[in-house]
């Protein structure tokens, strides 16, 4: 375990060095990330100028959920962006060299890229997160602080696990250019808003089938004691473990049917 973590950090560090060679890209991607997340915030602000609350959620409550999606995205993009390379790695045969190195293939794939937009996401998501925490109506007891620390720390793992799971489709779809995982990424962005606004089917998908809501909405309900069942948010660590296990399972299943490329 410790060896794995250390090697993961080594691979990411090396990737960071390679990435920093393209400094122009870093700035463009950072600005793009700031714009993208900033626009989402302006959107919420414009709506809440007109109405005081949606389904009992006030502006800063929703900003908290929104900022969690941005933070989660930032962490996933910085630490595990490699998941998005799977379609290419698997279907153009690049996995061959990964499989003959003595380090977990999944961890090698995950650490094979660093998203330069991650920092922008973290900066903006972090600012919104702090602003939201200051403004929400919550009394900060030690128990609540501990709960918040736990569920917020586990939230990004939910996204990373689901990213792995959806990107493992590469083993089955067999094309290096697939919009499939991207469609699910967009599904995940539905978790930017309180789950109560959706119909039953969408709620079930986001909380059970592909539990994207555990990266933002459920942790927020647990900390703010809002929504119909705030205790569900305490399951965030379980959801995180479940998503990571699903991802690992899919990757292992995929490896047994990996065909490399050519003869």
């Amino acid at each position: 375990m410790r060896r794995n973590l250390w090697l993961y950090r080594r691979c990411l560090g090396a990737q960071l060095r390679a990435t920093l060679e393209y400094e122009g890209d870093f700035w463009i991607m950072s600005v793009a990330a700031l714009l993208t997340q900033g626009m989402g915030f302006v959107f919420l602000w414009a709506i809440f100028r007109a109405i005081p609350q949606i389904n009992g959620w006030r502006f800063w409550d929703v900003v908290l959920i929104y900022s969690l999606v941005a933070l989660t995205e930032g962490v996933a993009v910085l630490l595990a962006q490699g998941a998005w390379t799977m379609a290419v790695t698997v279907n153009l045969g690049g996995l061959d060299t990964v499989l003959v190195r003595p380090f977990s293939p999944l961890l090698q794939v995950l650490s094979s890229q660093i998203g330069m937009n991650g920092l922008g996401n973290l900066v903006l998501g972090g600012s919104l997160f702090v602003a939201a925490l200051v403004h929400v109506h919550a009394t900060w007891t030690p128990v609540r602080i501990a709960t918040a620390a736990l569920v917020f720390a586990c939230a990004p793992l939910v996204k990373i696990g689901l990213n792995i799971l959806t990107n493992c489709s590469a083993f089955w779809l067999k094309t290096p250019w697939s919009m499939f995982p991207f469609a699910f990424h967009t599904l995940g962005e539905l978790a930017r808003y309180p789950l109560g606004i959706y119909g039953l089917a969408v709620r079930l998908v986001l909380s059970v089938v592909l539990p994207y809501a555990f990266m933002s909405y459920f942790p927020a309900t647990a900390v703010l004691s809002l929504g119909s069942a705030p205790w569900l948010g305490l399951l965030t660590p379980v959801a995180a473990a479940w998503c990571l296990l699903l991802g690992r399972w899919a990757f292992r299943r995929g490896l047994t049917r990996y065909e490399s490329s050519g003869s």
Partner: peptide
């Protein structure tokens, strides 16, 4: 591939409607 891309934008539109 195009239809998966369309699915993504559709999901975003559905979220807006909700």
């Amino acid at each position: 591939s195009f239809l998966f891309g369309l699915l993504a934008t559709t999901l975003a539109a559905v979220a807006m409607l909700y």
